[in-house]
Design a protein around this nucleic acid. Structure first.
Lengths: 246, 246
DNA sequence: TGGCGATAAGTAGCATGCTACACGGTAGCA
DNA sequence: TGCTACCGTGTAGCATGCTACTTATCGCCA
């Protein structure tokens, strides 16, 4: 918790826990490996094998695994090892619902005349997004998008919101490296961001929250693997579809 | 994380971590001691002394302390021990802002015709609140109030919301045992709850969110020690005061 | 052939040994 | 008297020993 700052998926995240500690390094390594699919969903592991593979003792590995269990990335089975948790559609719906509550709350608060102007904070990330879109550099675009959202939450200066957003990022699958064709979804993202910031600038809370809801809903749908799309109802994620800007 | 169910402050909270594990027991014990003031804000401790006092080895104590640091109840200083964190007005404001986002989101979602009727879920807790008010049993009232809020969030069936609410509960000081006079604030709480549930039943999202905001704002102010009230502006908590139901 | 019990391997969880480091106090010197 | 260097105490963090338990495998018996 209490991590700050924006970084691409594979970067490290600061923490009150000493960044140089073995335990923290192992936590970050394992979390990335899970996100990158190097430790696939459903695969079994043990503290022993992980410690051996990473070249450290069991203690820091155990501490890292306990944290992974806390953020629901793995499940620990006593005397049986640990299993990388599968991400169900319901999990994704829960995560995006929570993201909507946090980020929707942020834009709702920011869309008032007496709130600080966040344009200067977001400008560099928007520029980076545009540049990445031009050359269809998906990884850079994804990193900049993450920074954009992190910044939006960061201006609220609420550590609970920030840490929750960080944890939620790892509760959904990473965006695919290769989008076909990239500029379609990527361009749409820029438009959706613009709708959010325009509504904030106009001081229209309802429009800002609604724009955020639309953005998150489309993002959620884009993260569901194509193979599963057939099972996806038009209303999914259902709760997000129902969450009107209050 | 992923804890469920309602319980009074001093009760234990289920967890995916085996409830019978030493580590979990130590975590719950220390958390309660911090909440009860037996480990005062600012006090220093060490893994050694805590392990000795609790009659267990250092390992489970260390794991528990790391979790306490994760939910911001203590800060760990390398080679120096751990310090029980002081709760500032800003901390309380952050915590209640987050509570508003989660619980406000819950009532907003529930205040729709197609959402399930939550009256049956809340009824027993409301009855318990009334009974406790009649005999001015503050501890029972507090426990029932907690159960009421937990139930409200639980019907959303979103583990992120539930775990966040549980953590937030320990980020603010516990309500004082002796309220003077009890029936004033306690009676007001019942009225505020009724305003929330009435708005939900009427399907009025805006009114429901606003009622929740008012309730949380008054609760936040009631938890600030009387000694500090003089420093409290009328608008505190500021962000909550500005968070209109969009 | 089918079922069942003993056994061995593998695991999480707890206890404890070990190391580097932060800090306070004190002695020695200017 | 004031300052500095050193040293002892206490600490977090990592490594490793140990135990109880789960599970799979294999051999034995009906």
């Amino acid at each position: 918790m209490w991590r700050r700052g924006a970084a691409p998926y594979t970067e490290q995240m600061p923490s009150v826990r000493a960044a140089e500690s073995t335990s923290e390094q192992v936590f970050l390594t394992l979390r990335n490996e899970i996100m990158q699919g190097e430790m696939p969903s459903g695969s079994r592991h043990s503290i022993y094998t992980l410690a051996d593979r990473l070249g450290v003792s069991r203690t820091p590995v155990r501490e890292a695994v306990l944290r992974l269990a806390d953020i629901n990335l793995v499940t620990i089975e006593r005397n049986r090892g640990l299993v990388v948790r599968r991400i169900s559609l319901a999990d994704m719906e829960s995560a995006f619902e929570m993201r909507f509550l946090v980020e929707g709350g942020a834009v709702s608060f920011l869309a008032t005349p007496d709130a600080r102007d966040i344009s200067p904070d977001l400008a560099p990330h928007t520029a980076r997004l545009r540049a990445a879109l031009d050359i269809e550099d998906v990884p850079t675009f994804v990193a900049a998008d993450r920074a954009w959202h992190d910044t939006l939450v960061a201006v609220m200066e609420n550590p609970w919101m920030q840490s929750q957003i960080q944890n939620l990022r790892f509760a959904t699958p990473p965006p695919p490296e290769r989008v076909q064709p990239p500029h379609v979804r990527l361009g749409a993202i820029l438009d959706e961001h613009a709708a959010i910031t325009d509504a904030i600038a106009a001081g229209d809370r309802r429009a800002a929250v609604d724009a955020m809801r639309v953005h998150l809903r489309k993002t959620a749908r884009s993260l569901v693997p194509h193979a599963d799309r057939a099972d996806l109802s038009d209303a999914w994620p259902t709760t997000l579809a129902r969450h009107y800007p209050a």
